[in-house]
Computed example of a mutant assay.
Amino acid sequence: MKFVETNGLTIAYERVGEGHPLVLVHGAADDSRIWHPQLAALADEFTVLAWDEPGAGRSSDLPDEWTLEGFADALAALIESLQLGPAHLAGMSWGGTVALELYRRHPGLVATLIMIDTYAGWKGSLPADEVRARVAGARRMLSAPPAEFDPTFPGLFAGDPPAAHVELLAAIAADVRPATLEQELAIMAETDLRGLLPHVAVPTLLLWGDSDVRSPLTVARQFEEAIPGTKLVVIEAAGHLSSLERPEQVNAALREFCRAHPPRAT
Rank of each mutant, 00 (worst) to 15 (best):
A41K: 04
L42K: 07
S215A: 15
A29P: 05
V25S: 09
W51T: 09
A174E: 04
W94L: 14
T204L: 06
A220G: 08
A12D: 02
E184F: 03
W208F: 02
V233D: 05
L185C: 10
P228F: 01
T47G: 00
G121P: 01
E69A: 15
A28G: 15
E65T: 14
L217A: 09
D160T: 13
A237K: 15
H199A: 10
T204R: 07
R139N: 08
M141T: 11
F223E: 05
T6A: 15
M188W: 10
E190K: 14
P198A: 02
L113M: 04
F71M: 06
I79K: 11
F71G: 02
Q249G: 07
A74P: 09
A147I: 14
L68T: 02
A74N: 10
N251F: 03
V131P: 11
P263S: 14
I114D: 01
L217K: 04
E53R: 15
H165L: 07
P178C: 03
Q183F: 15
A12P: 01
E65C: 13
V110D: 00
A12F: 12
G57R: 08
D117S: 12
A43Y: 05
T67E: 11
A170F: 00
R140Y: 04
A29W: 05
I11H: 01
E184I: 08
E53Q: 13
T112C: 02
D73R: 14
A201Y: 10
I227W: 00
P151N: 06
G91C: 01
S243A: 14
P86R: 03
V4E: 06
T47V: 12
T67Q: 11
V166N: 07
L75R: 01
A43V: 04
G195M: 11
A186W: 12
A179L: 12
H199Y: 09
L168A: 06
L89W: 13
A189Q: 04
V16E: 12
A260C: 07
E236F: 07
T230A: 14
L84F: 04
P262S: 05
T180G: 03
A12G: 00
W66S: 03
G57F: 02
D64Q: 09
A237F: 09
P54D: 03
S215H: 03
